[in-house]
Write a protein that binds this DNA or RNA. Sequence first.
DNA 1: ACCTGAACACCGTTCAAGT
DNA 2: ACCTGAACACCGTTCAAGT
Lengths: 184, 184
Amino acid sequence: MRSDARLNRERLLAAAAEVVAEEGTQASLREVARRAGVGLGTLYRNFATRDELIQALLGSRFTQLARRAEELAAEREPGPALTAWLAEYLAHSTVYRGLTSSVMSTLEAADGPLAQACAGMREAAGALLAAAQEAGAVRADVDRVDLIALVSAVGWIADEAPTLAGRTDRHLAVVLAGLTAPPG
Amino acid sequence: MRSDARLNRERLLAAAAEVVAEEGTQASLREVARRAGVGLGTLYRNFATRDELIQALLGSRFTQLARRAEELAAEREPGPALTAWLAEYLAHSTVYRGLTSSVMSTLEAADGPLAQACAGMREAAGALLAAAQEAGAVRADVDRVDLIALVSAVGWIADEAPTLAGRTDRHLAVVLAGLTAPPG
DNA sequence: ACCTGAACACCGTTCAAGT
DNA sequence: ACCTGAACACCGTTCAAGT
């Protein structure tokens, strides 16, 4: 009884990974259930909301990214630690098309499991940011939310216009340079 | 005969302005036809594609923005002219929710009327950019596409997370600062 | 307990039928 | 010529009915 339920859950996650890789985070949930060979209701019981499914798919990535912030804080100077982390953040938040939007929407509805994972990540980013600002490496008038928003925005560009994917590094460089400069 | 057709078109545009103001550029086209008191087929003949409708709704804004670039080039120094124009561009590209995405997608499918209006605008931006770069006011490794992409990305932030709308000025300031700095 | 899939209320898009 | 709306192929979400 319990075991086949778990099997269904695993099938759903495997199917979701496939479908989301193909269609992005806005992929059809029906298609996920279909490919998992499972009823639609089963999908909805396991993942009451789309965000729950996405969280299950890559929540571990985000909590790991939070831990990574601590590592970088220990290894490098405040400025480089922050920029290195932001680059990793960008890489992880663009593994799926639409993910950058999903993560951003997290700021509106603070409940939900994905929102919590993202909040933890932002907290970690906040520590790196504070250190960098203390060291005078980053302008003082931005907070951690601005930080995540701006880097997510860079990710969004390639999301919306795949042709521009090759420019992502440069776009990030512009934003990082903007963060470094003194506030006007 | 011809006159009632024109009336239908006007009704559609009026309804579209309303619905898009409420729901963004992804608004239901059915709802537009409904509110215009017109059959769905009539909407599709007048505007074969969603982008055509959006173009009809605010194409004039974009061509005007292109002209505005020339004005600013004449009035101000290259650096300030560019940043002033980008601020205006941002303001116009956020009048409707989702517009920033619609404009960005324009880079992928270069045909279509909205794409053409945007291309003209980018051309105008290119002239401002070239002058600013020549004057040493803007880093040399970005082109006009990067420019539009980065500023659109700033607009996207408030689109996706309305809570952050109050931060748009700061986000733009960061990007502008990043454009000014030398290319690392 | 868990699962299924029909049912409902929506889409975008096309196209036969009407005037 | 122009218009309408049913028809088709999709959604997300819920929930009665089954095991």
